[in-house]
């Protein structure tokens, strides 16, 4: 009992933060089930009936195309980032050569570079390559800007792998490629998880490149689709809330299924840096 009273302020604080963090989600979800009339008369009440009309409207408007686009872009980018950044980190972490430090720093500096500083040249470059308004045009910049953090995470992780491991392999005349692929890469699982989760969340939600490099709704990713929808249906607030709910659902679902994995995975690499 005394314990309960002692922890009262803690509960109070925890619940206040819970409301601040969670209430917007609750309101978003509840509003999405309402009709426009019902929203007008009582905007913040619990809906009278849980109608799925707003969601059906989204299906009709082919909202799922945006999901597919975002998924393609995010998965392709993340897979390529994992492979090429792990590869680049291998010599940076395990081999001595003169340009080692400068190259590592060059990658690391990328973390502070504002995307906007590269926006105009990338826009022009993408146009010149004929990739404007295509999903492939997005993948290039997404990979490029995911590289710095990924290289840093992989390099730091690889430095901690004991040297003896590869020494015996080297004596056996194992090539660097086989050494990396068969011995080092399988040991990187925790770092791969961090890099994958972190970059997937970022790319899935990325906005500015998608805004500048695509034009048609056929090639729009989810954030662009949401904004388009908001522009077109700005009066239909319950409809917008349904779109927001649907747009946030994939990541939230994955999060609820594999919560502990995502949270620890996300932190595992970053904390060390």
């Amino acid at each position: 009992m005394i314990r309960m009273i002692k922890s009262m302020p803690l509960y109070l604080l925890a619940i206040i933060i819970l409301i601040v963090m969670g209430l917007p989600f609750v309101i978003m979800l509840l509003t999405s089930f309402k009709g426009q009339m019902e929203f007008m008369t009582s905007p913040w009440s619990i809906p009278e009936s849980f109608s799925l009309d707003n969601y059906l409207l989204l299906v009709e408007l082919e909202f799922f195309g945006y999901f597919v686009n975002s998924l393609i872009v995010a998965v392709v980018s993340v897979v390529i980032v994992i492979i090429i950044s792990a590869m680049a980190s291998y010599p940076l972490a395990r081999l001595k050569f003169r340009l080692n430090r400068p190259i590592f720093i060059l990658f690391m500096v990328g973390m502070m570079i504002p995307i906007h500083t590269t926006l105009v040249p990338i826009f022009i470059l993408t146009n010149k390559m004929g990739l404007y308004d295509s999903l492939i045009g997005l993948i290039g910049p997404y990979i490029a800007f995911a590289l710095p953090i990924s290289v840093v995470i992989f390099t730091q992780f690889m430095r901690d792998i004991p040297k003896e491991l590869e020494e015996s392999a080297k004596i056996d005349g194992c090539s660097h490629l086989r050494l990396f692929w068969n011995i080092i890469f399988p040991l990187l699982t925790p770092a791969v998880a961090t890099v994958a989760i972190y970059n997937f969340i970022h790319i899935w939600n990325e906005f500015i490149f998608a805004l500048v490099l695509t034009n048609s709704s056929q090639n729009a990713t989810l954030p662009i689709g949401l904004r388009e929808f908001y522009g077109e249906f700005s009066v239909n607030i319950p409809g917008i809330m349904a779109a927001l709910t649907l747009g946030s659902l994939p990541l939230l679902l994955v999060y609820f299924i594999a919560q502990e994995k995502i949270v620890t995975g996300l932190a595992a690499g970053s904390v060390k840096g």
Partner: peptide
């Protein structure tokens, strides 16, 4: 419950947060 809810905002896209 606390842990799950506290982390949710980070997973939402900025565009969705902005509109909300």
């Amino acid at each position: 419950l606390f842990r799950s809810v506290y982390f949710m905002p980070f997973l939402m896209s900025t565009v969705a947060i902005g509109i909300l």
